[in-house]
């Protein structure tokens, strides 16, 4: 017989495991993935599967080079999450090499070279996305029109790089369209893609699906409500007053909230705990500033969507935000500010 001698506490919450947390996040993306597939065809699924395989292989390879226990580190599912988020973010028409470059860069450069899970200052998926966006802008903006989902064979062809008549297969997204015709009431009214049931056509469902998944995560206690609420509040805080001032020039709040990657970003990307702020107030500020930046870049920037840039910029500021939002410790008169003596 042997007795275990360890430090207290001797019990932990059941099912308390990073891997389990990450699996919950994966489950929460399922509605979004389903809607994407329904709207845009099998390209999303094909890319997603490929991205996951690439991520696991590259992660395993780097772990081997770094001399780490491969099975132990793969079991936290963090590489899978990165792959899934990146695959969701890139267009379903993307060829295989786009996914390969993005995922490899995300895993190797943005994550493992910083020391692996927990050490990366930036959201790896977004680093990969931004790399692709500025390197291959054409491929990265080639979205399918929402009502013309490709067949499985077309998706496969696209995946293997047989583009064919690209223009026939793709169309502009609502955000793109708005950017092009902002200020021109006649044109805006003539594009059906801007007039779905809630917001831009098709994308409203994508966003609603991700909102559903996000609410599930909050309900399960996987993420706290602070960052998503901050992001949505930030978008709203910018979109609403400007829309009230000039509804031809500036999109309406619902359009901003339910277009592009707003919900995906608010619930799945900005909430990546490693690169986000950690204190409660810090998270609210972090999210709010992302929301503001998203609206600003969408409205005035050179890119149609802005979630990736906004998240990366705020990742940079997260340590500063944490520094200024430390809670007041029990028994202390005021909160200390980090390293100040």
């Amino acid at each position: 017989m042997a007795l275990i001698t360890v430090s207290s506490p001797h019990t932990t919450r059941k099912g308390n495991h990073t891997g389990a947390f990450m699996r919950q996040v994966l489950y929460a993306t399922l509605p979004g993935i389903a809607v994407l597939t329904w709207l845009f065809g099998y390209g999303t699924l094909i890319n997603l599967s490929f991205a996951v395989i690439v991520a696991l292989l590259t992660e395993a390879l780097v772990l081997k080079i770094r001399g780490r226990d491969i099975r132990f580190y793969l079991s936290d599912y963090s590489a899978v999450i990165t792959a899934v988020l990146l695959a969701i973010a890139i267009p379903p028409t993307s060829p295989w090499w786009l996914t390969l470059v993005g995922v490899t860069f995300a895993i190797v450069i943005a994550k493992q070279l910083y020391g692996g899970l927990g050490m990366n200052p930036f959201n790896p998926a977004m680093v990969g996305y931004v790399l692709l966006l500025i390197s291959f802008p054409a491929e990265m903006t080639r979205w399918v029109a929402p009502n013309e989902a490709h067949s499985f064979s077309t998706s496969l062809q696209l995946f293997f790089g047989h583009i064919g008549d690209v223009d026939a297969l793709t169309g502009a997204t609502p955000l793109d369209t708005w950017r092009t015709w902002a200020g021109n009431a006649e044109q805006l009214a003539s594009h059906p893609i801007l007039h779905g049931n809630v917001a831009g056509m098709g994308w409203e469902w994508v966003n609603l699906a991700f909102l559903l998944g996000g609410l599930y995560l909050i309900a399960r206690g996987i993420i706290t409500w602070h960052i998503p609420a901050g992001v949505l509040a930030g978008v709203l805080a910018m979109a609403l007053p400007f829309w009230l001032i000039d509804d031809i020039r500036y999109g309406d709040p619902l359009f901003h909230l339910f277009s592009g990657a707003t919900m995906l970003g608010a619930f799945f990307i900005a909430t990546d705990p490693v690169s986000a702020a950690t204190s409660r107030n810090g998270r609210l500020i972090f999210g709010f500033l992302i929301g503001v930046l998203v609206w600003v870049i969408r409205t005035f920037g050179g890119y149609p969507d802005a979630m990736a840039f906004a998240v990366l910029l705020l990742n940079l500021s997260a340590p500063t935000i944490d520094y200024y939002t430390q809670p007041r410790t029990y028994g202390h008169k005021a909160a200390k500010r980090g390293a100040r003596k």
Binding site: H17, T18, D76, T224, P273, T278, R280, R283, P327
Partner: peptide, 11 residues
């Protein structure tokens, strides 16, 4: 496992 800075502890 590595700390993922989830902040549950601070909660």
């Amino acid at each position: 496992q590595p700390c993922i800075r989830c902040g549950s502890c601070a909660e």
